[in-house]
Amino acid sequence: MALVELTLTPLPAHVRTARLVVVAAARRAGLDDSLVDELRLALGEAASRAVGLHVKHAPQTPVRITVSDEPGGLTITVTDRGPAAGRVTGDLADEMLESDPDPDDDGVEALVDPDVALAVLSGLVDEYDVQADDSGTTVTMRWPLPARPVGVSGPGSTAASQV
């Protein structure tokens, strides 16, 4: 079961909400302080990418985010209902310089480049996976968690047998 599950109305303001909630959940799960900035930025990229796609393609459908404490580490998924993810094949800086959003368009679509967001995420996170099908894309990111202290709770621990 996920530790935290969020469904966000696809609005730019909620991307910050998602960062705050996910960072708080990750800290509580024991994520090392040195990884928090990386997680905050990666989650921000994944969430703004998903919100940008939903504004354009699925404005009535929420973006779904889960935070889980799995054996492999802290696992975060961001699921959208937009078209499949693309790849930046050339130089990322060139791609950003050459992209030409409408200067009069103040909308989310002109701000979020889904492929650039994914490229930044992939440059940040060591362990990530992108699964796309006809219904949308799920980005999964994973960070190591410190081993749980032994014997704090549960059967057979020293502390428990002394009670």
């Binding site: 960062r19 905050r40 930025l41 921000g44 990229e45 703004s48 950003m96 310089l97 992209s99 959003p101 200067p103 701000l111 979020v112 480049d113 650039v116 967001a117 930044v120």
Partner: peptide
């Protein structure tokens, strides 16, 4: 905090 949407705005300003 700065993400790629913020970078995009700076790049737009540069252009």
């Amino acid at each position: 905090f700065l993400d790629s949407t913020g970078l995009g705005v700076l790049v737009g300003g540069l252009k």
